[in-house]
Amino acid sequence: MTRYAMVMDQRRCIGCQSCTVACRTWNDLPDDIIYNPVVSEGVQGVFPDVHATFTPLICMHCDNPPCTICCPCKASQQDEDGIVWVDEAKCMACKVCVNSCPYGARDLSSYDRPLHSFVRKCNFCKDRVREGEQPYCVMTCHQKARIFGDLDDPQSEVSKLVNSLKVERIFPELNTDPHVFYIPDLGGHR
């Protein structure tokens, strides 16, 4: 079985937002839709003893996604390889999935034509991934801070990283079983 997952190496991320822009252009997103913001609390500490951490966000492609069972139209769904996606043709934009996602990974574009908006979210660039390529945000990352692959393949880089390092996940206590893993930055200049 294939189970796609992503690892965010926060030790390498510098918050350039290339992935954010790349995703917007590759997927032709309207201006108000952001699939993968890179957030940071800014520089923390007392100068000059300070640190900063950048957290690239994206749909967590949870194993227990709260956003699919709540969808009345079966538009929000998960494939066998773990990819959670929205079939735009089936969506009626009730937004229940938007509200149900603890990660803010879904949004409804307000710039679409009237009476025809739909919920949009990251789908791990499934068209690219199934052609054997990397999701576009992974490819565009100069810093190689995003690593994508098949978690079920013990030879894959994600599998090795997830199993060999102490990785973290966002809000694991919600039992959503997110499949985006973070290698935390220890912070501070060394």
Partner: peptide, 25 residues
């Protein structure tokens, strides 16, 4: 139709930053 970073290019090896990605816009 589309652009993407050139994976074989010696400088960027497929990477493109915010600016590089907006060429079509």
């Amino acid at each position: 139709l589309k652009i993407e970073g050139d994976p074989t290019h010696p400088t960027n090896q497929g990477g493109l930053c915010c600016r590089g990605n907006i060429a079509l816009l």
